[in-house]
Amino acid sequence: MNAPTTWRPRLAEGTAPVLAVLAVLLVALAFAGPAYSEPTGYLALLKRAAPLVLLAIGQYFVIVSGGFDLSVGSLVTAEVVIAARLIEGDDANTAWVIALLLGFGLLVGLVNGLVTTKLLVPSFIVTLGMLLILDGAVFLWTGGAPRGALSPSFRVFGRGGVDLPVVGHLPWSVVILLAVLVAAVLFMRGGTGRTLVAVGDNENSVRLAGGRVDRLKVLAFALSGVLAALAAILLGGFAGVSAQVGEGLEFRAITAVVLGGVLLGGGRGSVVAAAAGALTLEALFSLLNLLGVSGALESAVQGVIIIAAVAYAALGANPRLRLRPRAGTPEPAAR
């Protein structure tokens, strides 16, 4: 089992279609908008997409191990609101607040994971409950509306960048994104990452083979929580404080992951494809925007493409799967 032999089938299974679609979209963007005739246009797209890509990577860990994380959207809102309340616009507070935010994301992920594995509650319910708790608790604490302000040094991660000689202005969010992506790819190619995918495919066999299933699942949720915190830091810097900042992001992240050909129910799909799915989604929205499609129809388009993507994965892509009854539904441990 050396790297090339396992990498190839994975690329063929889910990554290739989404990369093709992404390439088409990126080329179409160049024709549709003058801003995309230069690399800066694409960098701006990458910067906009960074939070969603981070969320998609986090969601990927959870989905590939057979779960769901519905709490990330409200976690992002909670993080941004907490950051604004604690920083109060003061630069001196930036460092410890960022540490606190990452810690809070980790904590929420750990709670999600521990309740799922130790109390045996389905992750859909756990994270749904967490969504309600976070939504309520944050606004209970702030009294209904976000208060305070983010400091300039906090916002630099979402807005600022570094000037480099060759590429020009490189946004920090893109740097963070690339670092996370590389780390995620290395993680998934290592033993732990592979076992995580195996947990999603067949939990019992991993357990019988001596894998620590519970620990791996908790790890997946913890990673999702931390990445949501990171996404919140970028989003807060990029878009500012509002109570709606994380709205619908959980479903958007799941859409992105599914668009990347990752099977809901776990056990199949690559993290690069999930990240590419998020980028594809964002590129598609940019393209629709340039073509003058009303923003209201954005969600309708999102709806059509996730159904089409999953139907394609279940029916069209692989004739082997077509013969297998109901390959598109998650049936953990059924195979």
Binding site: F68, F251, I254, T255, V258, L264, G265, S299, A300, Q302, G303, V304, I306, I307, V310, A311, A314, L315, R326, A327, G328, T329, P330
Partner: peptide, 17 residues
């Protein structure tokens, strides 16, 4: 279409939205 119910109904929900 053999789409997972979560995705199928989420997609229809987004179309309605």
């Amino acid at each position: 279409l053999k789409v997972n119910a979560f995705i199928a109904t989420l997609g229809v929900a987004l179309i309605l939205r």
